[in-house]
Simulated scan of single mutants.
Amino acid sequence: LDGTIDVYCANAGLASPGDVLADEEVWAAAWDVNVMAHVRAARALLPAWLERGSGRFVSTASAAGLLTMIGAAPYSVTKHGAVAFAEWLSLTYRHRGIKVHAICPQGVRTDMLAAAGSAGELVLVPGAIEPAAVADALFDAMAEDRFLVLPHPEVAGYYRARAKDTDHWLGSMNHLQQKWEETRA
């Protein structure tokens, strides 16, 4: 090996539950890990990749970055930022040989899911998949040069529904929020 990096997986993530009233430190940490770590990695990698005309950046975001997650404002907002940054990288450097993938799983059976609390139990656990299934979805997307990687096929339908009728989507999510609040009362 010559020490060059061909593929970089920005996989660090910080699950940050809470609402808009979460402490400033919670918001700052979520922003630092879930968005700025991707930015910093890209800044380090892009000069060499652009010089040689190839490189692949994998941004592990989350379905929360497309759809939002109840009970986790810092996580949802910053995962939206991670998806947006990956989109920006792709549209800016695609023609220069840089390939970008945004992987947006829903529930994955990891320690992060185990720590997701009652919101995770309600929304994520029923359809949770193994990490190997996420890796398989990523490898398929890489082979097909697809930007958006959705290991949970149902997320594509949710994403379309959200785009088609945002007000209806928000109403449905608010009902889920209410259901979650009732379980916590």
Rank of each mutant, 00 (worst) to 15 (best):
I5G: 06
V7I: 15
V7K: 11
V7L: 12
C9S: 15
C9Q: 10
N11D: 12
A12S: 10
A12C: 12
S16T: 13
P17T: 03
P17W: 09
D19I: 11
V20R: 15
A22S: 08
D23V: 04
E25K: 12
V26M: 08
W31Y: 09
D32E: 14
V33W: 07
N34M: 11
M36F: 03
V39S: 13
V39E: 10
V39N: 06
A41M: 07
R43W: 04
L45G: 04
P47D: 12
A48S: 07
W49D: 00
L50A: 00
L50N: 02
S54L: 12
S54A: 15
G55S: 09
R56G: 00
R56D: 12
R56C: 03
F57C: 09
V58E: 08
V58G: 10
S59V: 09
T60P: 13
A63T: 03
A64N: 06
A64S: 14
L67M: 02
T68L: 03
A72E: 11
A72C: 12
Y75C: 02
V77A: 01
T78Y: 10
G81C: 05
G81D: 05
A82K: 08
V83M: 14
V83F: 15
V83W: 15
F85L: 15
A86I: 01
A86W: 00
T92D: 12
Y93R: 02
Y93W: 00
G97W: 03
I98G: 01
V100N: 00
H101Q: 10
A102M: 07
Q106T: 08
T110E: 06
T110C: 13
L113Y: 01
A114T: 08
A116W: 02
G120K: 05
G120H: 11
L122W: 01
V125R: 07
G127M: 11
A128G: 08
A132E: 14
A133T: 09
A133F: 13
A133L: 13
A133H: 14
A135R: 06
D136F: 04
A137M: 02
A137H: 02
L138G: 11
L138F: 15
D140I: 14
A141C: 09
A141M: 10
M142V: 05
E144Q: 06
D145L: 03
L148V: 01
L148A: 04
P151I: 05
P153F: 08
E154S: 08
V155Q: 13
A156C: 14
G157K: 00
G157R: 01
G157D: 04
R162L: 15
R162W: 12
T166E: 08
D167Y: 07
H168T: 09
W169C: 03
Q177G: 07
Q178A: 15
Q178F: 10
Q178E: 15
E181W: 04
A185G: 12
A185H: 09
